[in-house]
Write a protein that binds this DNA or RNA. Structure first.
Lengths: 168, 168
DNA sequence: TCCAAACCCTTGGATGTCCTAGTATATTGC
DNA sequence: GCAATATACTAGGACATCCAAGGGTTTGGA
């Protein structure tokens, strides 16, 4: 880790915006920049926790998604939609998970275009162990206050709905 | 854009966590996942707004940082620290900005190890125009309520301080 | 019936990020 | 003064993401 800065660089940026006559958008600029930086910090923690398992966050997310599917299998396009990533990213992740023996591809029984991804027994076990570590090392020690967590869920939920993620 | 999902996938994940006996960390898990997704949405908007200028967010951030430096020049290591990215990422960004004629490298007057990055006139102009577009198209239409913006700045500021970003 | 349009996945190319290692320059300690 | 350590940047490799393009499959209208 690099040593802490003496001053908050985002607060500095907000002041810069204000002194340049962009005061009307300085606050949302600061909020958005803070989200970017927070994501970066959290991603580093998550990847660090998953490293011992040979997993990246992208691959873990796919494993976790499959482990919650009743049948343990999902079509690629469904996984792409639920994880909200590009289909090629799923292809990439499945390639590596398959090489590691954690998932297998199998043809869809009725639609020849579709490929199903299925957890192996190993994959299911690893997903369980990785989730336990993430829960303990990252989610359980997030550093967010309990009330702040609820605020975040509401604020970001409103935002995601407004951005067209879901209609719920 | 892919069509909206009928249900919030993050709320689903939270319910899954609760039903698997991880209720104690379900809320922070949901908050962290929401931050990840929100960052993804915002990044796509930002990159879209910058595309006409041939800039990525990483390169824009560097230009903006230089444009706020009194002298219009910064050492690479200083830029790396302020942007909170790896030094090699700065090298990469400078390579491309230099090719585009927006910055130049120059030797540090007293420290032979250090390379200064300096804005060109073109770089300064482009930074100004790109900032105007970002302010208008992204920060000015973030979709966050005014009070939520203040909440985010406080909550994420507390988090970043706790994570060791700054001591302020 | 049959062909065009839509859909699904993969490949190849570009970009960005990080890590490890290497080169060059400064600083420190003996 | 010289060697050991620290610092600054760059090169090469691993991953992840997206876009554009291509080949196989299904669907639906003429």
């Amino acid at each position: 880790m690099s040593p802490p800065l003496p001053r908050d660089p985002i607060a500095d940026a907000q002041r810069n915006w204000e002194s340049h006559g962009w005061g009307d958008v300085a606050a949302p600029m600061a909020a958005i920049t803070a989200i970017m930086r927070t994501q970066q910090i959290l991603m580093a923690r998550i990847e660090g926790a998953l490293k011992p398992f040979g997993l990246t966050f992208a691959r873990y997310e796919l494993l976790a998604l499959l482990s919650f599917a009743r049948s343990g299998a999902l079509p690629m396009n469904k996984a792409s939609a639920l994880l909200q990533v590009h289909p090629t990213s799923v292809t990439n992740a499945v390639d590596r998970l398959q090489t590691a023996g954690l998932v297998v591809r199998s043809p869809h029984p009725t639609d020849g275009r579709t490929t199903l991804i299925e957890l192996t027994a190993e994959g299911r076990t690893l997903a369980k162990r990785a989730t336990a570590v993430l829960n303990g090392e990252v989610f359980g020690q997030s550093g967010f206050g309990e009330e702040d967590v609820n605020q975040l869920i509401r604020i970001l939920g409103d935002f995601r709905r407004g951005a067209g993620d879901f209609t719920d």
